[in-house]
Simulated scan of single mutants.
Amino acid sequence: MPRVAFVTGGTRGIGRAIVERLKADGMQVAAGYSGNDAAAQACAEELGVLVVKGNVGSFADCQQAVEKVTEALGPIDVLVNNAGITRDGVFHRMTSEQWSDVIRVNMDSLFNMTRQVIEGMREREWGRIVNISSINGQKGQIGQTNYSAAKAGMIGFTKALALENARKGVTVNCIAPGYIDTDMVASVPEQVLKGIIAQIPVGRLGTGEEIADMVAFLAGERAGYVTGSTLSLNGGQFMA
């Protein structure tokens, strides 16, 4: 039986590249999304995958999403926690809403989603959890105290959960991408983008497909000895 994978934030950008790659590898894949119905419909039609709407910041929404995926495809074997948002601003002007929105979607979502699937993975003695963090969770970034805190917290979450579940055949790993060629990065002013690229030793942005390649390995049958790791894919911009 093919493995079943669920990718949050899976209908656009990095998430969609991950969905496409896991499906190409023979998995049954569902893509979660929160708001862009047009992108979700395009993803479903073009890739032939199940799409499920819900807010990863809500425990109830995550529970319902997992129930829908399980009913349609079977128990989830691979969870990719990819959904995330930014609400940038320097800390001394940051509102409580900017802080709480980012922590809820980027950090609380790890509990909300992973709690739904971890018991089943332990019972079946096989599971793969891949968390998509960020270079800014490793090095920090001006204007992103909220985002950097959430993404750094993801790394700690990964390590602790990996220790708890290693003997049950469940691996938990983290990927920390640098600047990737997505719509969000493409919206940055040209001069700012040139400055960013100048700081990347390989001299270019990364691609969603490069992130997807690493996720595919970590989600695969041969990655059972890799757990608790944070893998940096940033073109040499930050070497932890």
Rank of each mutant, 00 (worst) to 15 (best):
A5I: 08
P177D: 01
T95M: 07
T207L: 08
L110F: 07
I118Q: 08
R115A: 13
V49W: 00
G203T: 09
R124Q: 12
C43Y: 03
L218I: 10
H92W: 15
A176C: 13
A40M: 09
I135E: 05
T230L: 09
E71A: 15
K139G: 05
Q28N: 14
M1F: 10
L73Q: 13
G203R: 08
H92P: 10
D88V: 01
R115G: 01
G9V: 05
I200V: 14
Q141D: 12
N165I: 01
T86Q: 13
M27G: 01
M113T: 07
A216H: 06
Q64K: 13
A42G: 04
S100R: 12
I155Q: 00
G89R: 04
K168E: 10
S58R: 03
V202L: 14
K168S: 14
A38T: 12
S58Q: 11
F6W: 08
G35M: 04
T182F: 05
R104M: 08
R204P: 04
I85Y: 00
Q63Y: 11
I155L: 10
A72W: 09
A176H: 00
R122L: 10
L233H: 09
R124V: 11
N36D: 15
N36W: 09
V78L: 09
K168R: 15
E119T: 08
D61R: 06
D213E: 13
R104I: 03
Q98P: 00
T95V: 03
M154E: 13
M214G: 03
G156E: 12
V69T: 02
N55L: 08
Q144L: 11
V4P: 04
C62I: 03
G137I: 04
T230M: 08
N165H: 15
N106R: 05
V185Y: 02
Y225W: 15
V188N: 11
A31C: 13
M27S: 08
A17M: 10
R128G: 04
G127D: 12
V29R: 01
S187L: 11
F111A: 11
Y179H: 06
N136F: 13
Q141E: 14
N136I: 12
T86N: 11
W99D: 02
P2T: 13
L163R: 15
A152R: 02
M113E: 03
M121S: 00
V49E: 06
F111M: 10
V102K: 00
A152C: 08
M113G: 04
L73D: 02
G178L: 01
T158S: 12
E210H: 05
V215Q: 00
L79E: 06
L161R: 02
G203H: 04
K139Q: 15
L50T: 03
M239C: 14
K194W: 04
E190R: 12
V19A: 14
W126P: 03
R21E: 07
G178C: 07
M154L: 14
A166G: 11
E97C: 06
I118P: 03
Q64C: 04
M184W: 09
A31S: 11
G89S: 13
E209K: 10
C62R: 02
F217P: 07
A72T: 13
K68W: 06
M27H: 13
S134P: 09
F91Y: 13
T145K: 02
D61T: 10
E45V: 08
C43N: 05
D77W: 06
V105L: 02
R128H: 06
